[in-house]
Structures are given as structure tokens and as C-alpha cells.
Amino acid sequence: MNKVFAIMVYAGVPISVIGSLLHWPSVLMFVIYCLTIIALASYMGRATESLAIVAGPRIGGLLNATFGNAVELIISVFSLQAGLHQVVLASLTGSVIGNLLLVAGMSFLVGGVKFKRQQFNVYDARHNSGLLIFAILVAFVIPEIFSARLTATKTLDLSVGISIILIILYLLALFFKLVTHRGTYQDPAVKKAEAHEEPEWKKGKAIFVLAVSTLAVAYVSENLVHTFEDVAESFGWSEMFIGIIIVAIVGNAAEHASAILMAYKNKMDVAVEIAFGSTLQVAMFVVPVLVLISLFFEKAMPLVFSVPELVAMVASVMLTIILANDGETNWFEGATMLAAYIIMGIGFFLL
């Protein structure tokens, strides 16, 4: 399988460049871009696995989420510059529900088919649950509620204040997990098993592959965005559906593949860190950073989501916490999360 992905990368990246320069049909390029991103995602998954063995599941998962979200951040900045605020917010909503329901759901399902019972660090699960409730139920819902009685200027001021608080708390959360309490809640048996495992690539090579793959994914993803309008016309997709479902899935393809691969290998700590850690990074870092960056453009973006977007994110957080807060999972829980994602996808498609 690795040879197949290698061929897809070595062929897909040059063809993507040639096709974009020669202006090949958008639908054809859409397929080529998607296949290329999937192949690049396999390399990011292998690099993440190597880093997780060398540096631990938390840092490995965090690096994967960071490199994966860098792609979405780049795409969103270009969209902000073009004044496409609703598309940006929709794609960020899609990232939240996609990571929580699609990525985690697929990971639990694929891993659960192979292993009847999978476990991950329950303390990390509870820690992430508290941050998810804060980010989505507090930081995202409050601007929507208050915006009904505030002027546009005051709503933006509130958004900027909340964004700064989110970034500070996210950095404190990383400091807590990676510095002051690193290894405090790790299972000694898991730590011992990881110590005897040999990584596929050394640390330097893994970081290099991860960085180069991310740059390639960023290039291909940016070109992919330009095909959405034509593809939407061809298939009859709405702008909100493209932002929440299509852009979010493609923008996070690397994380999706990595988390599922880790779950298949029963490395649930890494899989969960990728899925939940990426969600927290989007909600507590990417979104507020985009709000602050938008201040330098012609039109600033307030932190105000639509009601359907908020309901979808809140429902995703609550379902995820209920199913995953015990530190154990199985294939049926994964199927339940996927069912919820499909229901939301149908709703946004028809909206």
C-alpha cells in the first residue's frame, strides 16, 4: 500500500501543477487534487507515527494536528482576503464536527472492527472534554446571543476579546499537558511498551517529511478551492454544504488518514489526540487567530456563527463527551458518531 501511495504522490503532485497551469477541466482537477491529498496524507500519517514513538503520543498527535490545521489556516486566510467570511466560518464549523464525529467516528469504527475493546487515556479525555465545553458552549455561543443586542462594532470588540482569551487559554493548556503535567497521567504499561517500539523514520526525517508533505498539501488544497464553484454547479451543491462538508473534509484529509491508521494499529492515544486535539486547536487557536487577522483586511470577521452551525457543533461536543469520556470505545460507538455526522450532512445539504 505504501508503494501505491508513493506512486500517487510522485505522479499526483506534478500532474496537479501541470493541470493547474494548463487549466484542465475543474471536475477532473477536483478528482486529481483529492487523490493527491489522500496520498500525501499517508506520508503524514507515517511521519506522525514515527514522531509519536520518539516523542510520545501527545506531541506526535499535536504535531499532526498542527501541520494539518496549517493547511486550513492558509486556505482560510485567502478566503478572508476575498471577503468570504461565511465560507470561512462554515469550513471551521465543518472542521469541528468533522474531527469529532467523522474522524473520531471512523477511528473508533475501524479500530473497533479489529479490536473488540479499545482504551485510551481517560484523564486526557476528561481534560479535553472540559476544554471543548468551554470553547464551543461558552466562547462560540455567547457572541451569537449577545450580538442580537449589540451593534456591529461592539460585537467585533467582543469577538476580539474572546479570541485573545481563547488563544491564551490554549497556550496554557499546552503548557499544562506538555510541561508541568507531562507524563503525570500516563499509564506506565503503555509507556513501557512505547519504549520498546522502533520508529519507521528517525526524528529528523519524520519532521522533514511532515513539513514537506504539509507544504505540498497546502499548494494542492489552495488549487482545489478554486475548483469548488464549478464542481458545485456541476453537482448542485450549496455554498454552505461546500464549506462545512467538502472544504472541511479535504482540508483535514491528512488528519483523517493519520487518526484512522493509528486506531487500526490500536494506538488510540495518538488517534484521539489527533481528532480531539485538532478540534481544540481549531476552536481555541485557528478561529481566534483568523478573527484577529481579519482586522487587517477591508472587512473584519466577527466570531458569530449561524444557529444551525452552533447547534451542530454543540450536538457534536455533547455526543462525543458522552461516548468517549470513559476512556473506552468500540465499533458501535464509532457507527453512532458517523450516523450523527451523516444526519448533519444531509441537513446542511438541504439547507
Rank of each mutant, 00 (worst) to 15 (best):
E194S: 00
H196F: 01
A232D: 04
I207S: 00
K191I: 13
A189G: 00
V217W: 06
Y185G: 08
L215N: 04
A218S: 09
A211Q: 02
S238T: 10
V212D: 08
Y219A: 11
W237D: 10
P199F: 02
P199M: 04
S221I: 09
H196A: 06
D230N: 07
E198S: 02
P199D: 05
V225D: 02
E229F: 10
G236M: 12
N223I: 12
K202M: 12
F208T: 03
P199V: 05
F241G: 08
V225I: 14
I242V: 14
L210F: 05
S234M: 09
L224F: 15
N223V: 12
V220C: 05
W201H: 09
A206R: 03
V220R: 02
K202R: 11
S234T: 13
S221N: 09
A216D: 09
K202D: 15
F228K: 02
E239F: 12
A189I: 15
L210R: 02
L215P: 04
S234A: 14
K191M: 15
A218L: 09
I242M: 11
L215Q: 02
F241D: 06
A211Y: 03
A189T: 13
F228E: 13
A216K: 01
F241Q: 07
P199E: 03
A218M: 14
T214P: 03
A195E: 08
W201I: 01
Y185K: 13
P188K: 01
A216L: 14
G236V: 09
E197T: 02
F235Q: 02
S221L: 09
A216I: 09
P188V: 05
L224D: 07
V220I: 12
A193R: 05
D187N: 14
E233V: 10
P188I: 06
F235C: 10
S234Y: 10
K192H: 06
Q186T: 15
K203T: 15
D187P: 08
V209T: 07
E200P: 00
G204K: 08
E229P: 07
K203N: 13
A211I: 05
V225C: 04
E200T: 09
D187A: 09
S213P: 03
E197N: 03
G236C: 07
V225P: 02
S238M: 05
G236D: 05
V212N: 06
T214E: 10
V190T: 14
I207P: 00
S238L: 06
G204F: 10
T227D: 01
Q186V: 15
I242W: 02
V209C: 04
D230G: 01
Y219D: 05
E229M: 12
V209A: 04
E194H: 00
V212C: 08
K192C: 01
G236A: 07
V231C: 11
T214I: 11
H196S: 06
E197V: 01
K205L: 14
M240E: 09
E229Y: 11
Q186F: 14
S238G: 00
G204V: 09
E229S: 15
I207A: 04
H196G: 01
A206D: 08
E198C: 00
F208H: 01
A195Q: 11
K205D: 07
F241M: 08
G204T: 10
V220F: 03
G204E: 08
H226G: 10
